[in-house]
Simulated scan of single mutants.
Amino acid sequence: MLRTLKEFFDQLARQLDAPAAGSPGPAADHALELATAVLLVDVMRAEPTMGEAERDAVLLALRRKFHLTDDELARLLDLAHETARTSNDYYQFTNRLNERFTQAQKIQVIEAMWEVAYADGTVSALENHIISKVAGLLHVTHGEYIAAKLRAQENAGLRG
């Protein structure tokens, strides 16, 4: 069981590092899922204590976006934690999203990041910084960024 899980993680990590193929397939899809998950997990990791509410927000966002099974979500979340822990920049992840996502999809990622940040009722300065940095790397305009933030606030019941 553990060997199979490790092989799955190794395969996803190789896919993320591999150059984009001419026609996207399952490998590119997995790399896209991992890139998105890492960005969401990094917002969750921004605070010293990671609560269940933030973890649930990450899982909900990934389930909405990629329609994965519970087992696939759990494996993706584990891999995203490890990848986020060992990564030193966001470019490798945002570049993948810029290649494959529409502008609307990139805005949805920013909104999901805000939803993770607001899941515990507060947003730390580091969470704000991470989301702002990723929004810039995804070429999300300031207006789109603010609109995504306001929607996430409203969805969290913190506005309105």
Results as ranks from 00 to 15, higher is better:
76 L>D: 04
64 R>E: 14
79 L>Q: 11
41 V>T: 04
73 L>Q: 14
80 A>P: 09
81 H>N: 10
79 L>I: 05
51 G>E: 13
41 V>Q: 10
75 R>W: 13
76 L>N: 05
79 L>R: 03
90 Y>K: 02
72 E>H: 10
72 E>W: 05
48 P>L: 03
90 Y>R: 02
37 A>M: 05
83 T>A: 04
67 H>S: 11
49 T>F: 13
72 E>S: 15
86 T>F: 02
52 E>T: 09
38 V>K: 00
56 D>V: 15
54 E>L: 03
82 E>Y: 13
41 V>G: 08
58 V>G: 01
46 A>S: 15
40 L>D: 00
71 D>H: 11
71 D>G: 06
69 T>K: 13
53 A>D: 14
72 E>K: 08
50 M>Q: 07
74 A>Q: 15
38 V>A: 02
54 E>S: 12
51 G>L: 11
57 A>V: 00
48 P>A: 10
70 D>F: 06
46 A>Q: 07
78 D>C: 08
38 V>N: 00
68 L>A: 08
49 T>Q: 14
58 V>A: 01
60 L>N: 04
52 E>Y: 01
73 L>T: 01
47 E>R: 06
67 H>L: 12
87 S>G: 15
54 E>W: 09
69 T>N: 06
81 H>Q: 09
63 R>F: 03
73 L>A: 04
50 M>V: 15
53 A>Y: 02
68 L>C: 08
59 L>N: 05
65 K>T: 15
38 V>L: 03
76 L>Y: 04
72 E>P: 08
41 V>A: 11
41 V>P: 07
81 H>I: 11
71 D>V: 13
89 D>C: 08
69 T>L: 14
49 T>I: 12
80 A>Y: 07
77 L>P: 01
85 R>L: 06
70 D>T: 11
62 L>Y: 03
52 E>I: 09
70 D>K: 12
89 D>L: 07
80 A>V: 03
84 A>M: 10
66 F>D: 09
78 D>H: 14
70 D>A: 10
83 T>K: 09
53 A>M: 06
54 E>P: 07
63 R>A: 13
67 H>V: 15
40 L>S: 00
48 P>D: 07
89 D>K: 07
57 A>R: 05
65 K>G: 02
78 D>F: 09
67 H>N: 13
49 T>A: 09
78 D>S: 10
86 T>I: 12
50 M>H: 01
62 L>D: 03
79 L>V: 00
82 E>M: 13
80 A>N: 07
84 A>Y: 01
76 L>M: 10
45 R>A: 08
72 E>R: 13
56 D>S: 11
87 S>P: 14
78 D>V: 05
62 L>A: 05
37 A>N: 03
66 F>E: 08
80 A>T: 02
49 T>K: 11
45 R>K: 15
47 E>V: 15
71 D>Y: 06
41 V>S: 10
69 T>R: 03
39 L>I: 05
81 H>E: 10
88 N>Y: 01
90 Y>S: 06
51 G>Q: 09
51 G>I: 12
86 T>C: 02
59 L>K: 04
80 A>Q: 07
90 Y>C: 05
57 A>T: 05
